[in-house]
Design a protein around this nucleic acid. Sequence first.
DNA 1: AATTACATGTAATCCGTTACATGATTGA
DNA 2: TCAATCATGTAACGGATTACATGTAATT
Lengths: 168, 168
Amino acid sequence: MEIKTLCLGILALGDATGYEIKKMVGEGSFSFFSEASYGSIYPALTKLTDLGLINCRVEKQESRPEKKIYSLTPKGREALEESLTKDPGPDKNRSEFLAALLFAEAVSPGRVTDLLDDRIRSHRDKIAELKAISDPDDSGATAFVIEYGIAVQEAALGFLTSNKHRLA
Amino acid sequence: MEIKTLCLGILALGDATGYEIKKMVGEGSFSFFSEASYGSIYPALTKLTDLGLINCRVEKQESRPEKKIYSLTPKGREALEESLTKDPGPDKNRSEFLAALLFAEAVSPGRVTDLLDDRIRSHRDKIAELKAISDPDDSGATAFVIEYGIAVQEAALGFLTSNKHRLA
DNA sequence: AATTACATGTAATCCGTTACATGATTGA
DNA sequence: TCAATCATGTAACGGATTACATGTAATT
């Protein structure tokens, strides 16, 4: 998914500023399946505005820079619907950890245990983080996606804890 | 992990040609956590050779182009060890599927069921594929990594099948 | 006193994919 | 006969990150 579609989709869930979009993809419920920097978000927002897919209202604040709050236009909604008809394709999982594990066994066997222990810790952290943002009252897709994330993280954690003895 | 380290690591597991490396990252046991094209592999191999981290022996074949078989040098092994001391960092999971799911609920609710069903099917395929390349006799990191992949895919599949009624 | 959060944006740079270029052999 | 497999490589292009640029206010 290109960055423009990501912005369009986030704005379909509610109006937001570039700054807020960045927070969502960096920390919120989007954080475990997407990522984006200011250097890609702001230009995308400008481009989408030029295309008439979103529009922008400026809110003045005292002693703070102005906020540019973007919202989806009907045309933008159509464009989003159109792009959602396409097959999303398989996930792209780039795991430095798995690669490191595979290679470490060959060249630095002593490193394997550390790699495993660090990873177990970060799975626990990620699960705690996801549980903190999950809302049991929400029955919609957001909660579904977060719980999906928790399920996957827990499976990975479970596999590592019960199999680490094989490599360590 | 940059492409150069990936090549170094693969060569630490055994000599290979650029063509073979591409097959490994595209179909083999690396396929679910990395990816690379010829356009990045061949230049990386040339660069690594210039740096003295790998070397190349040419094998002539009748009625086929020559093979360039690369192998890791001691210097290359050191460089790999060095890069493995660094924290691999969290995985980068870009999931078009999860994003599409989240957005579809907002703009095309009818699309949700299809998205879910397609995804369930592709998890089943992926699991079958991983099981086909997994070797129960191998007790090393390669088998570990493949089984890790299976565990994660099965958790995702399980979550989707038992929770799809919530969205569909 | 220093860091984090708020808030937006641009330019340089990196990294990688896609498409192009070439060519023989084998199986459907 | 047509597609796929084997086998290597380059050039154009695209997309995103990083670093840069600016400035206030609250928190530690």
